[in-house]
Each structure stands twice: as structure tokens, then as C-alpha cells.
Nucleic acid binder design. Structure first.
Lengths: 128, 128
DNA sequence: TCCATGAGTTACGAATTGGTACCTACTGGT
DNA sequence: ACCAGTAGGTACCAATTCGTAACTCATGGA
């Protein structure tokens, strides 16, 4: 769906995780998935308020992409005003483990880096 | 390192997997990591030949980014011509599991989709 | 003497990205 | 009568991205 994919589309067919990473990679995608996971099904406006800073355009586009990949379901109720609820599909939930593991690794690295910085700072202070 | 990060940097601090996904997300990043994982430490040119279609500029930039994140180590020998070898660090190898799982999910989805398409095609043929 | 190699760097340029502002249609509140 | 909220769509515009082509430096080979 992006030009990038078209651009080297043939090569990327060889790597199955490429597709999935491309899906997760949008700047806001992880926030959206994270919010849908932790706060459950939500309406468009709710989601937009939670994912602070995102524009309606971007949110729409990301949700459409996720919907196209069957990671998110869109339930439209033609009430007035209309009510559109987004939720994770089964596929969306299949990513829970991996995202959890990634978050864990991310946090571990963050902690390690912080410890390293602290140690270095202490070292500097001692040398001074 | 990207403007994207600067752009909503404060918000992204709340999500630890965001950093890590941003690292993996570059169009070529997974190929590079995959190649380093499966073919072991390699020199720049070797890597460039394996990751078909990548430009030297991109490869350099991606490797620098990965190096900055301590996922890849760069060993430079100042011989003539110079010899630069890249390999996964311990941190780089910590992603093996997750990437493996992602690849597995990706392949499963691909297979499911293919099965679905086949079923649909058969249905069409039967109806015809 | 000219070319190729290895590992890049730099300049340029076209395409893509993503934000802002404005539009829709409908209704309920003041 | 006017404004706000819902769920977007659209046009425009600036910035970013990524590819291409040219350049680097030093040496060994034809």
C-alpha cells in the first residue's frame, strides 16, 4: 500500500516478517494497538483523545490499514450521530505476545542503559 | 534520529516498544538483521550483495543506526583496501526469538490467506 | 596509464509523508 | 440562530525520504 512496498516488492516477498513489521511500523500504529489492547474496543473520538497528538487524517488512515490487514475490526452503527467502534480482531490479539515481549525487551534495555549511565556518572564524580 | 521521533518525542517515551519498533521498521532493517543472523558476520560488500537492491547509502545509514542502538557491531580494519565486518551484538541476538516469532506469525497468516483465496476460487468455480 | 576494489560520503532531485485548515451531514442544547 | 460533537473526506503545503550519480583514497593488476 505504500510506494516503498511497490518499490522493492519482489524482494520483500522472501521475508515474511517484513510484511508484519511494515504493518506495525507506522509512527502511531503501536499506540493504537496498545490502546485497543489495554482499554478495549473504543470509538474513533475516544481513541483519538487517547493517542494524544494524532490527527484525524492519520488515525483514519492507520485504522484503515490495520483493518485491511485484519488486525482491527470496524463496527459502524448508522445512528445519528454515527457511532464507529474499533476493536482488535483475533489476529490483532495474536500479536499480544510478541508486542509484550518487545515491550519487555525495550524496558530491559532502557533499564540497562539507565544503569550504565548512572555508573558512568558515578565514575565521573569519583574521578573528579 | 528521525524527525518523527522529535515530533512526538514526549509521547513516545511512554511506550517502550515504540523505540524498538522504530529501530526494526526501516524498509531494509529486517533483511540486514536476518542476513547477519543466518549468514553470520559479514563485510559491507557481502551484505550489500545479499540484501538485493539496497543502495550503499541506505545500507550505511541503516548499519549506523543499528550500531547506535547497539544491535550491530562494526569492526574496522584499516588495511588497504579497508575491511569492515558487521556482526550482531548480544543485544542483536536478543531479538532472534521475537523476530522468529514474527516470521512464524507472518508465514502462518500468509498460509491462511492463501488457503482462503484458494477456497474462494474453488467456490467461484463451483458456482460457475 | 587506466581501471577496479572496498567502504563509504556528498549533492541533487523526485516522490512520499503527514500536518493544517476546511468541508460534509445531522441533531441536541442554549 | 448558533455552536458543539461525531466520523470522517479533501485540498494544499512543507518537510522528509530514498535513490542515483559522482566523488574519495590508496593500492594492485593489465
Amino acid at each position: 500500500m505504500d510506494a516503498k512496498q511497490i518499490h522493492h516488492g519482489k524482494e520483500s516477498a522472501s521475508c515474511p516478517m517484513d510484511f508484519i513489521l511494515r504493518m506495525l511500523m507506522g509512527p502511531w500504529t503501536t499506540y493504537i494497538l496498545y490502546n485497543l489492547k489495554t482499554h478495549g474496543p473504543q470509538r474513533f473520538g475516544e481513541l483519538k483523545r487517547r493517542v494524544a497528538g494524532i490527527s484525524a487524517k492519520m488515525l483514519t488512515e492507520r485504522l484503515r490499514t490495520l483493518e485491511g490487514a485484519s488486525l482491527v475490526r470496524r463496527d459502524y452503527e448508522a445512528t445519528i450521530p454515527p457511532k464507529v467502534t474499533y476493536s482488535l480482531t483475533q489476529r490483532g490479539h495474536e500479536l499480544d505476545d510478541v508486542l509484550g515481549k518487545l515491550a519487555e525487551i525495550g524496558m530491559r534495555w532502557e533499564a540497562e542503559d539507565a544503569a550504565l549511565r548512572a555508573a558512568r556518572a558515578a565514575e565521573l564524580k569519583a574521578a573528579e
